[in-house]
Nucleic acid binder design. Structure first.
Lengths: 124, 124
DNA sequence: TTGACATGAAACCTGACGGTGTCATAATAG
DNA sequence: CTATTATGACACCGTCAGGTTTCATGTCAA
């Protein structure tokens, strides 16, 4: 019963770029495996395995509809990530001010179109 | 140098539990490798490699002091993570209300002890 | 029933990862 | 100078993750 024995945690699940794309693809629609795999340059089986890992981490949910299995995003587990992150927030607040504000400014609304938000790697 | 070709991104860097502990250990103090490795049940070389990966992702910074190399946290790259996360925030806000508030309530202080936040699996 | 479609499971390959031990080198102590 | 300490660079190894292909099963359509 809802035994929380996830072999894969959220951190590991989102570590893979393919998996992150998968999440984004399923962000608001529900899709069957074959349709999903059409968006990726790999075999359907490979995608299926990634989905399994995501499901294992609780990030997607499966629903069988006829002969197909539809997957959809389940964002709750990301809360763990958020909480982990929030712990470090106060640390970068120490040294960041302008940069932080610049980023924060885009969040509240619907900032998400800037997929490639480049951060200054070489700070000093 | 300043090679902007990080083989390891932030997502991958924090995927490993050891590396997350490493970050936490270096969160406000600067430590040399040997001292750091004293906190972990593995060889100094292994720790050193983890540090390399973290440095590669820009999450720690090295400073040579005499014959020792001191490492310290560099939280800026976590912003990328935060921005990635913020994209999904509005999605879990759809289905979460009480739960969200309950979690949010712990963040502001220094909440990080509740590692096992159980979420209702079947939302609808 | 028969056949096509959707999917998961299994066996397998390869490269990266996490770990070890050893060694070379730079810096400090005597 | 010599010995010790701190560290990084290597070489090596076992495991696992990501990928492929093949096969079995279940569902839908004629």
């Amino acid at each position: 019963m809802a035994a929380p024995s996830p072999k894969h945690d959220v951190f590991q699940a989102i570590a893979d770029p393919t998996r992150r794309s998968l999440l984004q693809l399923l962000v608001d629609r529900e899709m069957p495996v074959t349709a999903i795999s059409g968006h990726f340059p790999m075999s359907r089986t490979a995608v299926s395995k990634h989905l399994r890992i995501l499901a294992d981490a609780g990030l997607v949910k499966e629903r069988k509809v006829g002969r197909e299995t539809r997957y959809r995003l389940e964002p709750e587990p990301l809360l763990e990530l958020k909480r982990w992150l929030s712990f470090y927030e106060r640390y970068w607040e120490n040294k960041m001010s302008a940069l932080k504000r610049y980023v924060e400014a885009e969040e509240p609304s619907s900032g998400a179109e800037r997929a490639a938000g480049r951060l200054g790697e070489d700070g000093d």
